[in-house]
Structure formats: structure tokens, C-alpha cells
Amino acid sequence: MMEKLSENIMDKVSIDFLRDQVLKNAYGNDDTPIAQLDPRVLLLWYLFFALVPWFLNDVVVLMGMFVLTAITTRLARVAPLVLFVFALGVFSQTGYMFVASLLFGGDMSTLAPLLVLTLKVATVSLASITVFSGLDPDKLSNGLLWFGCPERLSFSISFAYRILPILMEEMQNILLSYRMRGRAPEHDTFGGKVRWVIYQVKTIVQSFYPLMLNTAKRSRTTVEALELKGYRYAATNMKVLKIKLSSLHAGRREAVFAFVSAAWVACCFACPAALEVLL
């Protein structure tokens, strides 16, 4: 039973699966309500939700903000793998602390401060998942460019999404060809297990040798193509920026989004006071 389960998990976590998930995350959700918003408004929205939760200590307000970011993440239709990594990250930051405090004789009273911390971390990360995973990479880099971020950063973002699937496939091919040529040591005994790990690590390090040479060729092609288009001069020229950023448009949809978010947050802040009056 256990063997079958681990086999099942290993089947799922192959490089193909990772590639599919990353690609799906980048390009698979153009039609969501979040992806259609203006990147500038979303970046400002992110700035608010990345900073403000750290300054708050009220569970009700934090809970309200968490619900809002959870809804936007749902709307952005983020790939499951990203959510899994998020859950793992939140647990490893605060969850294990609770387990540890239980082991050392703590009780449920330790839960409250940990809940506040967990809510803060979760809200901030969900906001970043919404913005950075929900948006098309080109839109995201245009938005950053508009705010005056260095051109190299926005170029890196667009380039990364395009080059990643190719690189992953190439790395997998190289790894597989190494595996076909070599023979992995038996790993039944402890010594064999150690030898097996050393063998795997050696294979990965060695496969970076052809990968580096291939990528060097590719990056020369990329840069030469960019030079042909006058990339280095265009990046700092206002006229080029104007043409490039003319697709950005903030209209009624963005206003509604901003208003709903602001109203929700205001309600969260007003809620504790309102409860006090009522009770």
C-alpha cells in the first residue's frame, strides 16, 4: 500500500508535470476577471495588501482581508501546484511552531498569537499569488515598466516565461541521456543508498556542462536579436516607451475593482466597532 502510494506521488512529480503546471500558471488563464484588469491598478492593490497586514493585530480585520485575497486568488484560477507550494510555505513558517509548542507543554492558548501571524503571512502571500501568477507575464512587465522599474527586470520576466519550458525540456533530455548511458548503483543496503545519492548528484552536476554550453549559444542568439531591434537604446527612449505602454488602460472595470476592495477593507475595520455598539 505504502509502496503504491509513493509510486503514485513519484509519477505525478515528474519534470513534465512541473513544466505543465508552470506553463498553465503563466498562460492558461488569460480570460479570468483578474487577468483582464490593468496591471498598474493591480500592482498598487498588491502594494496595499503586502504592507498593511503587517501593521495590524486585530483577528477580525485580518480575517476579512484574508477572505478577500482568497476570493481574488480563486478568481485568478491559480494552478494547484502554486497553491500547494503556498500551503507548504505557510505551514513551514508557522504551523510547525504550533506543533513544537504543543510538544513542549503548550495548549490552545498559544493558538491565538500564532493565528494572527499565520493570517498575516497567508494574506500577503495570497495577494502576491493573485497579482504575480494571475497576470499575463507581458502585462506584468509592462506594468512594472510603467512604474519606472529597470528595463532589465521587466525584460527578465517576459524572457523567463518564454525560455523556461525550453530549458526544462532540454535539462530533462540531458538527464535522461545520462541515465541511459550510466548504471545507477543498487540501493538496498545503506552503503548502496549513499552511493546512489552521490551518483544522482554527480549526474545533475555533470549535466550542467552541456546545458551551460547550449544555453550560452541560445543567449547569444537572443541578445543579437535584441540588438538588431536596438534594444539597449529603445529601453531608455521615452518615445518607444510611449508606444510600448499605449496598451495600458484603466477604466470602469478597474474603478469597480478598486472600489469593492476599498469598501471591503473599510467594512472590516468598521466591523469590530459595530459589534461593540450592537452588544
Binding site: 512541473l18 532589465r152 527578465s156 524572457f159 523567463a160 523556461l164 550560452a216 543567449s219
Partner: peptide
């Protein structure tokens, strides 16, 4: 710029994989 792109894509790929695999 070529060195920048080369280093970015290779190290980025490596960190992405190590981020996804616990």
C-alpha cells in the same frame, strides 16, 4: 548582456526546481 541572460536563465531554472522539490 549575454552573460547576464545566461546566468539568469541557468540559475533561475536551478532555483525554481529546488523551490518546487522540498
Amino acid at each position: 548582456l549575454m552573460v547576464f541572460v545566461l546566468s539568469m536563465s541557468l540559475y533561475g531554472l536551478a532555483t525554481l526546481i529546488s523551490e518546487l522539490i522540498p
